[in-house]
Each structure stands twice: as structure tokens, then as C-alpha cells.
Design a protein around this nucleic acid. Sequence first.
DNA 1: GACAATACGGAACACTGTTCCGCTTTGGCA
DNA 2: TGCCAAAGCGGAACAGTGTTCCGTATTGTC
Lengths: 226, 226
Amino acid sequence: MNDSDEGSGHAAQSKAQPGRKDARRNKEALLDAAASVFVTSGVEAPVRDIAAKAGVGLGTIYRHFPTRADLIIAVYRHQVDACAEAGPALLATSATPHAALGQWINQFVDFLVTKHGLAAVLQSDNAGFEALHAYFLDRLVPVCTELLEAAAEAGEIRSDLEAYELMRGVGNLCIGADSDPDYDARRLVELLIAGLRHTETDSGRSEPTPIDSAGQARGRADTLDM
Amino acid sequence: MNDSDEGSGHAAQSKAQPGRKDARRNKEALLDAAASVFVTSGVEAPVRDIAAKAGVGLGTIYRHFPTRADLIIAVYRHQVDACAEAGPALLATSATPHAALGQWINQFVDFLVTKHGLAAVLQSDNAGFEALHAYFLDRLVPVCTELLEAAAEAGEIRSDLEAYELMRGVGNLCIGADSDPDYDARRLVELLIAGLRHTETDSGRSEPTPIDSAGQARGRADTLDM
DNA sequence: GACAATACGGAACACTGTTCCGCTTTGGCA
DNA sequence: TGCCAAAGCGGAACAGTGTTCCGTATTGTC
């Protein structure tokens, strides 16, 4: 939806830069300011703070980035792209598809966890962030699918989980991982990925391991619902 | 339907019905209205909507519930309590501690998933919801610890995960599970719990299963960070 | 140097949660 | 019964969001 190739210092490639020079300068300043404010105050920092830091009015910010989400996308775009591109590379160089999947997920988690509040805003059903949500998903789900299928074909993991669900689960697990030293998202994600693997004794089946032996407490909350 | 005597709970407990009758009636109406609005519009529904539904002014809502979070707590208090109490019961009646843990977590997940946006608000680092967060944790973490320890002592699961982390992870996985038919929180939680179990071949160790064999991509995002 | 076209700044709007205070209702006591 | 402080009430007002709008300033082209 948005050109804004820059994300931080980018020597402009060639010419043909559209628009006025001051406009381009402001957009650049905005991206830098946003990146910096996101680091100190988190991704949910007020738009006004970013505008102030960039020395720019509110109108300017909204002309360049129609929505807060668009600004966030622009700031993290090439990091997301780098993550997407790392997938096939890892698959090519890793010992096994499963190893590649693990490393890739770890990269993604490290990315999310180091960006104050990004994970939270990513899963927010707040309408304003749909674009952000969609961008991450569009970019990463195909890569994750590839890794997942490779690992499944190699018989390393069960094959009944969609990449979309895995990505959302991982994203969810990263929420609040900053700002709480007692919560280690990386470990929980590892647990989740471990749960994905075939047990030594059931290699080949794709049934999810039942979580308990008397597992009839499923359909709906019984004791709990009024 | 709900006592909801007090959120903080250091009021005089000898007096049966404190306050004026109209005040009690309004509080009751507020709880009913809130419960109903939460069902239709989600937990993040505007305070004004709840006040309107209860036929009451804003001042009234804030006199009874100093904060949105307190109202949410009051609405769900006895369901949370029921969940807490179900823990020991399950432990007593289930075949194994692990089965009890699984059933208990399932109950909790079913509860969270059926309450529009509760999981999201629960993990929100938004300062206003600390009380809510704290209440859930205070009530449920001890129960979870008990179940976890029982299962660990029985040698069914690894013992290196704190109940707090598990609860937060489960809560996180439930975020957005309503409002997205393609995301099945229950399944992911099952995966997480499955990952908690000892593999048949390593019963006794408590090392987390390494998620990949060439796992050096850990410390910090390398390729990803600008 | 003139003058569209383009872009800018920030006031204003709509929507939150929360506070405040003048007015109303209640219920113990004559 | 009627009185009247104390308890409680409603909603205007405040503070903080994201977003829109438009009069003004800047730019780059002729």
C-alpha cells in the first residue's frame, strides 16, 4: 500500500524520486523519529510524540502515513522482509528442515521481543492495525508454510498445523515479553515447537497428542460457565 | 447472582449488607449490564455503554468500581474462583496429575476464549488493567503450581517451568481466539502442554529440549536487527 | 521573478477513561 | 408523620488518544 522503501538510512538508489524534496526529507525524518521513539516509548507511543521528535506537524505525519499502522509497517518493513528472506536461506543451509524451522522461528521471536509492544499491537483486533497484521502475515506465512511442509515431508513434525496458526501463536506468546523479566517468550515458543514434533514412538501419525487420558472436558466450559 | 463484595476486600466483613438499598440495587444493575454488554460488545466496550445499559450515570459506575478493571474483575470473579477451586478437585479425581493439569488448563482456556477480548485485556500492559492481571494471577497461579508440581513429582513432565509463565503463555495464546475462526487457541495450548511432557526417552532430565540441532542463532536477532 | 502545485502546521473533531461537584434520595429519629 | 444530614447520583468537564481539515508556506518550473 505504500512505497516508503526506506526504513532507516538508505542511500537513494537512483533518481526518479517522486514528490518534492522537502517532502522526502520529512518522510525520512519521520521514519527516523518513529524508530527512535518506538525504542524508548514502545510502538504504542502517541503520534504527537513522533511528530514532535521529527520536528513536524500532525498533518505531515498523516499525509505520509495514512495510519499509525502504516508508519509502523514502514519502520519495520525491511526487517520483516529480511526475516522472510532468511527462511529459504536457512532451509538451504541447515542440517534438517526442522532445524531451519527452529532457527527461523527463533529469529522471528527475537525480532518481536526486542520491539516494545509490537507483538501486542500485531494481534490487537483494534481495527486500525489490520494493515500491520496483514503485512506481517502476507510476508511471513508463505515462508513458514514452506518450512513447515519441508519438515513435515521429512517426517520430523506433525503436519496438521497451518503456518497461519503457528505464526499467530508465536506472535501471541511474544506479547508482553519485554517489560516482564519473569516471562520468557523464547522458552515457551520452544515448548510449542517441541510439542509440534513427532514423539519417537508415533512417527508417522498426524493426530495431535491428546493432552490427557481422560480428556472429556473439552466441548465447552462446564463448571465455569455461569 | 454475584456477591462481589469488594475488589480489594478489606471492608468490614461482619456487616452483611453495607450501604444504602438503592446503591446496592445500582451495583447489581451495573454488574448485570456489564456482563451483558461484555457478551455482545466485548470486554473493551466503552464504560458509557455499560452505564447506559444499566440506566445509571458515569459517576455511579466509578463510585462502585474505581476502574474499568475492577468492574471486569467483579463480573468474572466467581468464574475465576470456580476455576481456582476446580484445580484441587481435579487433582483428587483424575487418574494422574498430568490428566488433572490438562483438564484444568482446558477449562481455563474455554473460559478465556468465550469471553470477548478478555485474554487480550488480561495481558495488556496498559496500566489500568494491572488489577485485573493481578487478580487472575493471584487466584490461579497457586493452583497451577500445585498441579504442575504434582505432575512433575509423578515424573510426567519437566519441572523447569514456573506456573506463572505457563499461565501467561496460555493466556497469551487465547488472545484473539474469538473473532478468528482460523485460529484455534485450544489446539495451540495442547501443543504447548504436549511440549511440556517428558519424551519417552529422556524421562528424568529437566533440560528443555533444544529446538534445533544447530541452535546458535539465539542471543539476539542478528540478521534482523538494523 | 512569478505563480501553480505541492506540502506544511496545528486547530478542531470524535472518541476514549476518569474526576468532580451540585443536586436528589434515603432512612434513622422525633 | 415530617425532618434533614449523610449517602448516593448524574452528567458536565477534563485529559489523552487517533484522525481530519484547511489556511498558509514552500518549492520548483517557466
